[in-house]
């Protein structure tokens, strides 16, 4: 391991209130949940922060429960918790599908939904699902709660509206009535980072979100609008290609991402019964 430990300080809250008070009084602190990203940085010696807040024992943040016709998922729910939740399986199967494709079982057992969102990688596998489902991020601070639409959560590459004194505590996901669709295209069959990841649902109108094709996960408002007004699949493909901004990187090329995203859209729309 390249990171050092002895110069780091860990705060151990006993309750959410405790945690929020520590964030206010002792901040800035880096929240620590399943550590599946954080400890990779620590191992690589790239983690610069020195003060951390251990959220792991805040079991109250692990709940998965109904909220009206929708679902509320605690930020500390692990990918395994979500995959195994009958409620999620029934109401939000595309989220279960996304969690199933994250890492191996070891990662699924520790990694959390809140962590996936807070880590803010544009390749995060659950993010397109939250975006397509019009999820709301519930942020808490010592001053109270605020609710931010997921589509307004990220402001740029690895940047969000979350303040240093805030924690993600839950995601409220309204009911999705139509069909749901999820597809991840990674660097290999398992344990892969996404090259393109797409989630979609066709409630009263199609809602489509894509990851790994820009600095943040994106919804596709123009493509959705085109589809809502009766565009063909071919037209929708063209609109999507104009709407995303993929780049060449270590794992893939912009061209590949563009063409695959268009193909996935077509596949999804075909499965939704459009033409």
């Amino acid at each position: 391991m390249r990171g050092s430990i002895s110069n780091r300080r860990l705060f151990e809250p006993r309750s959410l209130r405790d945690a929020l008070r520590m964030l206010r009084d002792e901040g800035p602190l880096v929240p620590m949940a399943g550590c599946t990203d954080l400890y990779v940085s620590l191992n690589f010696g790239t983690l610069k922060d020195t003060r951390f807040l251990n959220l792991w024992r805040l079991d109250a943040l692990r709940k998965i429960e109904t909220r009206g016709a929708g679902v509320s998922i605690g930020a500390l729910a692990t990918h395994t918790n979500i995959m195994r939740s009958a409620l999620v399986g029934k109401r939000l199967p595309m989220l279960a599908a996304a969690c199933r494709e994250i890492g191996g079982v070891q990662i699924q057992n520790r990694g959390t939904l809140g962590g996936n969102v807070a880590n803010a990688s544009p390749a995060g596998d659950t993010l397109p699902v939250l975006a397509a489902a019009d999820a709301v991020v519930v942020l808490a601070s010592a001053g109270g709660i605020r609710r931010v639409p997921f589509t307004a959560f990220y402001t740029g590459y690895r940047r969000s509206v979350m303040r240093p004194d805030e924690l993600i505590v839950a995601f409220d996901i309204p009911a999705v009535h139509g069909r749901q669709w999820f597809r991840k295209v990674g660097t290999r069959a398992a344990q892969a980072i996404s090259k393109v990841v797409m989630a979609a649902c066709d409630d009263d109108r199609p809602r489509i979100a894509v990851g790994s094709v820009g600095p943040t996960v994106v919804r596709l408002p123009r493509t959705e609008a085109a589809l809502a007004s009766g565009a063909s699949i071919a037209d929708a493909r063209r609109t999507l290609v104009d709407e995303i901004t993929p780049i060449d990187d270590l794992r893939s090329t912009a061209e590949y991402r563009r063409r695959v995203a268009a193909n996935l859209l077509a596949r999804c729309l075909t499965e939704f019964g459009m033409s």
Partner: peptide, 23 residues
């Protein structure tokens, strides 16, 4: 040391975890 290879797998309360990523 990055949670990829699983050589450090142990069971924590009965479930497999990568012990290189558990504080």
């Amino acid at each position: 040391g990055e949670g990829e290879c699983g050589a450090c797998t142990v069971l924590l309360d009965g479930v497999p975890v990568n012990s290189c990523l558990v504080p």
